[in-house]
Amino acid sequence: MSNQDTKVGKEASDLPRRNFLRILGIGAACTGAMVSAGSLIAKEQVNESATAPPPPKIPNYDWNKHKWAFGIDATRCIGCLRCVEACKAENGVAQDAHHFRTWVERYVYLEGEDKPRIDSQSDPQNIAASGSEKEFRFDNRYKDAKVEKAFFVPKLCNHCTHPACVQVCPTGATYKTKDGVVLIDHSYCIGCEYCVQACPYGAREFNHVLGVTDKCTWCYHRITKGLLPACVEVCPVEARIFGDRNDPQSPISLFIRNNRVAVLKPETGNAPNVYYVGIDKDVS
């Protein structure tokens, strides 16, 4: 039985298999040729567009002329949280204690303790002190404690030079602009939140109303009009510094030049563009 079967099978399929393999070879060669031709054409297109891409149509603004950066002088921050409220008002961030594009952390080292006690404006005790989830303030819980050292650290999106969030976005909804800002195109965001996971700084929040991810834009709609980001505009103690790195006399260029600045989590390789002064080893 088995002998016969093998014989019959061999006779019946020998020729077609050879034919099939031949066709397959030709097909593969053709596909390879098409792909390589296609990629050549694509390369030509990229080269063409690289020579003359008109900048985005923003009135009186050319993104090739700017390189934005942000500075934070934590030695000046008083934890008044005007920036957090201003950001929410300016950008229509959800008025609750769970969605923030910028936030402020408080680090308190008590006498005899190695680790800092850290809280932010969304801490339940602080929400109770403000009496509302729409207003923010730090409660005075360490008033009578033996505090060795304490300070506030404002945080926001670092607008990294090599942003991990852009790397993982499957739809091209988030991207880095020529002037150094990481933005989100809400019409292309599918709400998968890969970027929220990828960001090492926890800077991204999810907009549950629109079903898309949101984040700090350095108030792109303001800086392209010659204004400061809202949080910088309202900071009463000038702890937040913003400006153009292309201008050597801009506040941020002076800030970086005149101070020993640090960035958060440099080991991740994201190369952040928010520069800090006055932060401690436990701030990351």
């Binding site: 985005p56 149509k57 923003i58 204004l227 809202a230 505009e233």
Partner: peptide, 25 residues
């Protein structure tokens, strides 16, 4: 405008920039 500047919709840059500021100075 998708491949205009990279793997994203180029027009979205101007769209985001067109928001109206609330803090006026």
């Amino acid at each position: 405008s998708y491949y205009m500047y990279g793997n994203y919709r180029g027009n979205s840059v101007a769209e985001i920039a067109s928001d109206v500021p609330r803090f006026r100075g």
